[in-house]
């Protein structure tokens, strides 16, 4: 029930492969779950701490959001017109 999992590697992977401010975008995507669990994550916290253990279902939601945003980022087009 209370199983925890480290979410930090997911955020770091997303930063490495995704768009700018992708961590904030992931947090916006999963915000209702964060609020429900009374969890407030910040970018500084994610970047500075060694691990970030969170409930497994929340980590799964973070993982889904991260994958979706990185996938869509790789489909983006040219920036110049």
């Amino acid at each position: 029930m209370n199983e925890l999992k480290d979410a930090r590697p997911i955020f770091l992977w997303a930063q490495e492969h995704g768009d700018t401010r992708i961590v904030e975008r992931i947090l916006v995507r999963v915000l209702p779950i964060l609020i429900e669990r009374k969890i407030e994550l910040t970018v500084d916290q994610i970047e500075s701490e060694q691990t970030l253990f969170l409930p497994v279902d929340l980590v799964n939601s973070i993982n889904s959001a991260a994958n979706e945003l990185v996938d869509s980022f790789n489909l983006e087009g040219d920036c110049r017109v």
């Binding site: 904030e24 947090l27 915000l31």
Partner: peptide, 17 residues
């Protein structure tokens, strides 16, 4: 409405982006 001050912080970072 969704997240109080935490919502402002997240939104503000993305609006600045």
């Amino acid at each position: 409405e969704v997240a109080g001050d935490y919502g402002v912080t997240l939104a503000g970072e993305l609006l600045m982006e």
